[in-house]
């Protein structure tokens, strides 16, 4: 069994990073909203919530980086130049790899931006 998956030709890998971004977004906003609404009934501090968000952020960034690495490999580690617009199987593969790589970059920055408020905001607003 190999640890790093074999390259596959499917459109679905394109969505890995956006799905991670969405899940991370949902987790951060959900946990902060629920905690602040019910903080009297929940026996943990807001610091624990922030640590949870930090953990989720690290996991999300690692997943996105992995998706970006797989896309980079599919793109041939930059050995070919875009635009990859020939109607061939090879170009389709390269195009998809390149698009996935760019999308992963966007999602990486977006996840950082989603997590940033938890860095500065240390309490629930009253």
């Amino acid at each position: 069994m190999r640890f790093i998956p074999k390259p596959i030709e499917t459109l679905w890998t394109l969505f890995t990073a956006p799905v991670v971004w969405a899940a991370h977004f949902l987790f951060c906003y959900g946990i902060a909203a629920v905690y602040c609404a019910k903080q009297d009934q929940i026996g943990i501090s807001f610091a624990a919530v922030r640590i949870g968000i930090a953990g989720a952020t690290v996991v999300a960034l690692v997943l996105i980086a992995a998706s970006a690495w797989l896309a980079w490999r599919q793109w041939g580690f930059g050995a070919h130049d875009p635009p990859h617009d020939d109607p061939t199987r090879h170009d389709r593969l390269l195009f998809q790899g390149f698009a996935t790589l760019l999308l992963s970059g966007l999602c990486f920055v977006a996840v950082i931006m989603v997590a940033l408020p938890a860095w500065f905001v240390t309490e629930c607003v009253r």
Binding site: V109, I112, M113, L116, P117, W119, F120, V121, T122, E123, C124, V125, R126
Partner: peptide, 24 residues
């Protein structure tokens, strides 16, 4: 990306002073 993250961080850094957070 770096400039936008920087400006966002600056705005967020100011935020706790603008709202009545907790015991503050």
């Amino acid at each position: 990306s770096a400039v936008v993250v920087g400006l966002l961080a600056y705005a967020l850094w100011l935020m706790p002073a603008l709202r009545p957070f907790g015991a503050a």
